[in-house]
Simulated assay, not measured.
Amino acid sequence: MTNEPYFEFNGHKSIDKNLYLLNEMELTIPESDLRFDEVDGRQGAIIYDNEREKDIIKTFPMELRKEADKSLFQQVREITHWLKEPKRYSRLLFSEDPDYFYEGIFHSQVRILDRWRDHFDVALPFRCKPVIYRLDGQTVTAHISGRTLENPEPINSLPLIQFRYSGTADATLTINGRQFRILRAAGAGMITIDSELGTAYRDGIANISNAILMQSDGYHVPQLQSGNNTISFTTQITQMMITPRWRSMAI
Score class of each variant (00 low, 15 high):
residue 185 A to G: 14
residue 188 A to N: 03
residue 40 D to P: 10
residue 155 I to A: 01
residue 110 V to L: 06
residue 11 G to N: 09
residue 63 E to C: 13
residue 239 Q to N: 15
residue 150 E to Y: 13
residue 133 Y to C: 09
residue 70 K to F: 08
residue 158 L to S: 13
residue 168 T to V: 13
residue 209 S to G: 10
residue 158 L to T: 12
residue 241 M to V: 10
residue 250 A to M: 08
residue 155 I to P: 03
residue 101 F to N: 01
residue 132 I to W: 04
residue 221 V to H: 07
residue 233 F to R: 01
residue 200 A to V: 05
residue 247 R to N: 08
residue 30 P to K: 01
residue 205 I to R: 07
residue 127 R to V: 14
residue 28 T to I: 15
residue 183 L to I: 09
residue 32 S to M: 10
residue 65 R to P: 07
residue 129 K to S: 09
residue 236 Q to H: 08
residue 36 F to V: 06
residue 54 K to I: 10
residue 246 W to C: 07
residue 53 E to V: 11
residue 206 A to G: 09
residue 76 V to W: 11
residue 72 L to S: 15
residue 89 Y to T: 06
residue 185 A to H: 05
residue 84 K to C: 09
residue 82 W to T: 03
residue 231 I to W: 03
residue 17 K to W: 00
residue 116 W to D: 10
residue 166 S to M: 03
residue 92 L to Y: 02
residue 59 T to G: 07
residue 112 I to S: 03
residue 66 K to Q: 13
residue 248 S to M: 10
residue 251 I to P: 11
residue 139 T to A: 09
residue 129 K to W: 04
residue 34 L to A: 07
residue 56 I to K: 06
residue 199 T to A: 12
residue 203 D to A: 08
residue 214 M to V: 13
residue 66 K to W: 05
residue 179 Q to S: 15
residue 17 K to L: 04
residue 165 Y to F: 06
residue 234 T to N: 06
residue 70 K to T: 05
residue 179 Q to H: 11
residue 229 N to G: 07
residue 103 E to C: 14
residue 243 T to E: 05
residue 159 P to G: 00
residue 183 L to M: 11
residue 219 Y to E: 02
residue 249 M to T: 15
residue 209 S to L: 05
residue 224 L to D: 02
residue 103 E to W: 11
residue 244 P to D: 02
residue 248 S to I: 07
residue 128 C to V: 05
residue 53 E to R: 14
residue 190 M to Y: 06
residue 109 Q to D: 12
residue 114 D to S: 03
residue 88 R to W: 09
residue 86 P to V: 09
residue 232 S to C: 11
residue 37 D to S: 14
residue 128 C to Q: 01
residue 111 R to M: 14
residue 165 Y to N: 01
residue 164 R to Q: 15
residue 64 L to K: 02
residue 40 D to E: 14
residue 10 N to F: 12
residue 112 I to M: 03
residue 242 I to K: 06
residue 101 F to C: 12
residue 50 N to A: 12
residue 32 S to D: 04
residue 244 P to F: 03
